[in-house]
Design a protein around this nucleic acid. Sequence first.
DNA 1: CTATATTTGTGCGTATGTATG
DNA 2: ACATACATACGCACAAATATA
Lengths: 77, 77
Amino acid sequence: MIDPEGMLPVYVQVADVIAARIERGDLVPNRPIPSETALVQEFGVARGTARHAVEVLRERGLVATIPGRGTFVLPPK
Amino acid sequence: MIDPEGMLPVYVQVADVIAARIERGDLVPNRPIPSETALVQEFGVARGTARHAVEVLRERGLVATIPGRGTFVLPPK
DNA sequence: CTATATTTGTGCGTATGTATG
DNA sequence: ACATACATACGCACAAATATA
């Protein structure tokens, strides 16, 4: 699923997987994406890497993070 | 007591101290070990570190945690 | 039944150190 | 020097489970 030896950095690969789930409707607007801890377990990456992936999703305008609550899928514009 | 500059991670050091107390009979089977908050105060560590220490003790099969109740010393095998 | 206190569970924010390419 | 990635450790806030008044 995630290839540490791949062309793209691990955090981008993780971001892409989550973005694809949003695109597919697997993750829906106003609902949280998996927590950082969940991403760590699912993808087998460090927490810093999971956070970096979520940061990418924020920069893409796909999600918004509420401190202490979670990161939520934004409605499509 | 706990050496942040030591060879072992703080959470392992804390786990070792508690394990020693169980070994010595200071903490007895079917009775709770100190709460996370108590460990935080006693050892001067963050709660996450205290939780990590308890996690280690669970992995060693020394204790079992019941949500909302506490973490209890298991009877020796 | 309600309210409060305690304890564990979860979530994010941040910083530091180490290692690798 | 820099980016990537992991591990450790600090902090805060709120939710869930449990026990008790």
